[in-house]
Amino acid sequence: MDKTDLLILKLLEENAKIDTQDLAIMTEIPTVEAESRIKVMEKEGIIRRYSAVINWEQTGYTPVLAVLDLKVSPERDFGYDRIADRIARFSEVKALRLVTGAYDLEVLVSGKSMQEIARFVAEHIAPMDRIRETATHIVMKVYKENGDIFFEREVGERLPFSF
């Protein structure tokens, strides 16, 4: 891992479809080197996959998102890891983090409807051993996701008045 690798990762994270030749010119290395650096990082699992950031709300096929806070009793020898692993395996779970504060695990859940999420939490998460308390927050609106701001904003236009 060097500075060039980091720069390549940043560029890919910003646009996974970037042309490798452009990427090589931008980072001041030969194209074959850019290709091999990417290959290596894919192999090592640093690059996990290439995906798109989608504003689902605009499509009309809006999944319902909920943030689920869980209080969990940690296990001797494993702490939170084993229960986190079990929760992470549900396809409804989009993100899972261990956090400080009143709750321990923060889970991002997505479903087709509020009912589906309610059922998922009631039937699969809440009854798990070691889960002491849950708090479910339905997401009402997404303003920013993965660094992308979803506001429709008017951007000031640069007028040609400079030298």
């Binding site: 951007v155 000031g156 640069r158 040609p160 400079s162 030298f163």
Partner: peptide, 10 residues
């Protein structure tokens, strides 16, 4: 326009 001598950033 590649004519404007100022940053495109806000």
């Amino acid at each position: 326009s590649l004519g404007v001598g100022e940053p495109d950033y806000v």
